[in-house]
Design a protein around this nucleic acid. Structure first.
Length: 445
RNA sequence: UCCUCAGUAGCUCAAUGGCAGAGCAUGCGGCUGUUAACCGCAGGGUUGUUGGUUCGAGUCCGACCUGAGGAGCCA
């Protein structure tokens, strides 16, 4: 009697007859011998059919199968060092095959394809081993993010997706009709979390966020998931410690649970192992000095020009890239000029032109993955900041209230799930880190 | 919005201004250890659209469309 199994557990069934329900990923026909690579969602393994053993009728039926045919395969599991798969080293000696649907002309072949073609066929591309591996890593990172906060006394409080105004004032938001009013899709839940910490102490919100900016780069999506923890009675130093513990936990969890997927992606895991630990903390001023030094030593004139920056400017991509190349771990840069950051950040004591903000920059040129800050806690200063940024005061009445009724020092940060996945998987484009990416010129499929 | 590059068979790409090609995929045949197998045969084309230059345009010029990468903005 055969046992129905999932391929990820195949090692437990050597010598036993098993049944696997899946899809045919690839087939190699060699005369009287056929290799069928079958995937079932949990992994991939190889079925072997030898004509004299299984008979002409079954052999011919298998031989005619096209890529991505859905089949139920039964046979005996055996170890074989030559067998590819995930896990590799195991294969199934085919005894019977039930064809659910024989497919011909599956568009995505095991050869090279262009980006546009693959994105048009994203619904089918997801079956490819690399895309499968990336999304499994994503699921693990997402769960690790949630577990970290759930296990450390945080309460998950969801924030609204439809909001009445721009939370941070500047970015372009997607407009949504809200009966006879104008609503917007949320770009952050942070301001609402600042309200909920005053009720629950430590909270996080984790959901989709939306940016209508016309960014057209390998780092941008218009819809992405953001984990945003917020903590009462927490200052900038404590914030950085929490971020460090958090990133360490995610890295350790992924390295432990998704090693085969990372290997399949060709990720150098030693780089990730090395990124676990204590992260350097440098100030914006120190970062600026480092950049000046790097610029000094650069020979390429175009590169030299790209690195031009003056105090008060935000870092561009070239600056972040060069800066992170100086470290083999993520690096904190804190104390940015207030003028390049959002209105709600706490000013530095005795240095009002600087704010208590911190970005965590990932190594290998991946750049900013976390942005956070200590929030302004004084009502007068907050009101002044709202006026300075020309934001509508009445829309922020509730937000100012938080500083009038038991205001405390508090901090929080946001991490983009897809950017974290891009870095940890070591891939070159964010669009592969979500099943159906939304970018500036793509809503299909 | 700006800069750069690209668009030719289902897919990936060739083609000095002079006959529209290859590999993969598909179909048929061969092969007992494949890993993007290999060997043979076959079918497969409105060269993104449009206007122009030319005896002749996939190729040169203009406009437009679509996509990619980057800048800015951001996670």
């Amino acid at each position: 009697m055969s046992i129905e199994i999932r391929i990820e557990n195949i090692a437990d069934y050597v010598g036993q007859q098993v049944t696997i329900k899946g899809w045919m990923y690839a087939i190699t026909r060699k005369g009287k011998l056929i290799f069928v690579r079958l995937r079932d969602g949990s992994g991939m393994t190889q079925g072997v059919a030898y004509r004299p053993e299984i008979g002409d009728e079954l052999f011919e039926e298998i031989k005619r199968l096209g890529q991505e045919s859905s089949v139920i395969m039964t046979g005996t599991v055996r170890e074989n060092g030559r067998a590819p798969g995930l896990p590799k080293g195991y294969e199934v000696g085919i005894e019977s095959v039930q064809v659910i649907q024989n497919v011909q002309n599956f568009p995505i072949t095991p050869k090279e394809h262009g980006v546009e073609f693959l994105m048009d066929n994203r619904h089918l591309w997801l079956r490819s081993s690399q895309q499968w591996a990336i999304l499994r890593v994503r699921a693990t990172i997402k769960k690790a993010m949630i577990d970290f906060f759930d296990d450390n006394g945080y309460i998950n409080i969801d924030t609204p997706i439809i909001t009445p105004s721009a939370a941070e004032g500047t970015s372009n938001l997607f407009e949504v009709g809200y009966f006879d009013e104008q609503g917007y899709l949320a770009q952050t839940g942070q301001l609402y979390s600042e309200a909920t910490i005053m009720a629950f102490g430590k909270v996080y919100c984790f959901g989709p966020t939306f940016r209508a900016e016309k960014s057209k780069t390998r780092r941008h999506l218009t819809e992405f998931w953001m984990m945003e923890p917020e903590m009462a009675y927490c200052d900038l130093d404590e914030l950085m410690q929490i971020e460090e513990n958090f990133v360490n936990y995610i890295l350790k969890t992924v390295i432990e649970k998704r090693r085969p997927e990372l290997e399949l992606l060709g990720r150098d895991i030693s780089i990730l192992e090395n990124a676990v630990g204590t992260y350097p903390r440098i100030s914006y001023d120190e970062a600026l000095a480092m950049l000046a030094d790097i610029q000094e030593k650069t020979d390429d004139p175009a590169r030299k020009k790209e690195l031009d920056i003056e105090w008060g400017d935000d870092f561009g991509s070239p600056h972040e890239t060069e800066l992170t190349k100086q470290f083999d771990k993520p690096v904190f840069v804190y104390g940015y000029p207030s003028q390049v950051k959002a209105f709600y950040m706490e000013p530095w004591p005795d240095r009002p032109e600087v704010c208590k903000s911190v970005d965590l920059l990932a190594p290998e040129g991946y750049g900013e993955i976390i942005g956070g800050s200590e929030r302004m806690s004084d009502p007068e200063a907050l009101l002044a900041a709202i006026h300075k940024h020309e934001l509508p005061e009445e829309a922020y009445k509730w937000y100012i209230d938080l500083r009038l009724f038991g205001s405390v020092p508090h901090s929080g940060f946001g991490i983009g799930l897809e950017r974290a996945v891009t870095w940890i998987c070591g891939i070159d484009h964010i669009r592969q880190t979500t099943a159906f990416p939304r970018t500036i010129n793509r809503m299909y499929p």
